[in-house]
């Protein structure tokens, strides 16, 4: 871990301004991903801005009938919130399927959205990785890629986004609220928040320099059955091979998003219109153009079968 300086932010705008002023600065909240990466010198900030003292840790009702979740609401608290459990069950379920109790106690809403990939080549600084070291190449292509992406990948990167929470946020049409160094704010639909790797896999979100996440808002509840199915080798404390977040209405219509397959939570609205026709058709639409590797080709049937199982459960 490289040496860094440290400050405690006094307000969101101040935090944003401080981050903009120092190009090597990072915000730190839960720290559960950032410190992990700093120890390996995958992240090498020269300055840390500790935002834990900023509040932003409440969940409030919005005038539109939804919820506004403070950026620093811990994953445990978000999953346990009565309103979230009742009206946005898919979100509670997704969060609880991720990490461990210890990690969820510290990890924050904003931090979860900004988790970096678990690609093992990203994690080994001796190996070429375009995300960690732009232009060095992608070791995962042709390497150990069982865990990695099958859709929306590029020749530069086949990493996946490891977040469970983000998959649920995507299916709920959440919006990310930010503040910029000049105190202006913006609202970014979560659909547009994460980027595909393209030829710049090091750029993972649309955030600008210094831009600071203050909250995530959920629109008014849409009802339906909320399901999150996470498929993995061990029963807990593991990243998804594939996950499916679903909100299914009684008439069989609904929304689905898939995790573990792409650089971002994967939702294809065109696939959702096929839901009443069943998992096979919907999954075909969802994964149209997929380019799996030999090692992760199993994710294609796995998505279809998991989706089928989720739809069965929704009907039961």
């Amino acid at each position: 871990m490289r040496a860094f300086t440290y400050e405690r932010a006094t307000s969101p705008v101040q935090a944003a301004a401080a981050a903009a002023a120092n190009p090597d600065a990072k915000f730190i909240a839960g720290g559960t991903n950032l410190l992990d990466l700093m120890k390996l010198e995958i992240e090498t900030p020269a300055h840390l801005i500790d935002v834990n003292g900023l509040g932003l840790d409440t969940i409030e009702a919005t005038s539109e009938g939804g919820l506004r979740i403070g950026a620093l609401v811990r994953n445990t608290d978000l999953a346990a919130d009565e309103r979230v459990r009742r009206d946005y069950g898919v979100l509670s379920r997704a969060i609880l399927a991720g990490a461990s109790g210890q990690l969820r106690n510290r990890a924050t809403t904003a931090g979860n959205l900004l988790q970096r990939t678990r690609c093992p080549y990203f994690y080994d600084t001796a190996q070429p990785c375009n995300k960690r070291q732009p232009g060095s190449g992608c070791s995962a292509i042709g390497g150990f890629s069982r865990q990695l992406g099958i859709v929306g990948t590029s020749e530069a990167c086949i990493a996946t986004n490891p977040s469970d929470m983000a998959v649920a946020m995507r299916v709920l049409d959440a919006t990310v609220e930010t503040v910029k160094p000049d105190a202006t704010t913006r609202r970014i639909p979560v659909a547009e928040f994460h980027r595909l790797p393209g030829d710049t896999p090091q750029i993972e979100t649309v955030l600008e320099r210094g831009e600071f996440i203050t909250a995530v808002t959920l629109p008014a509840p849409v009802g339906g059955k909320h399901l999150y199915r996470k498929v993995r080798d061990r029963a807990s404390y593991a990243f998804a091979l594939v996950s499916v977040a679903a909100v299914i209405q009684q008439d069989g219509t609904g929304r689905i998003a898939v995790g573990g397959v792409a650089h971002k939570p994967w939702r294809v609205e065109a696939a959702e219109s096929e839901l009443p026709r069943g998992a096979k058709v919907a999954a075909e639409r969802l994964l149209a153009g997929a380019t799996p590797t030999h090692e992760n080709a199993f994710k294609v049937p796995l998505v279809e079968r998991t989706l089928g199982s989720v739809l069965d459960e929704a009907r039961s």
Partner: peptide
């Protein structure tokens, strides 16, 4: 590459291209 290229943080938004700047202190704080 890191000096000129920059990376994205876990919790921040550092743009793709950042200025090279001396680290604030060689010695640990």
């Amino acid at each position: 590459l890191m000096v000129g290229g920059g990376t994205l943080a876990a919790l921040t938004a550092v743009p793709a291209v950042v200025q090279a700047q001396p680290s604030p202190a060689g010695a640990p704080a």
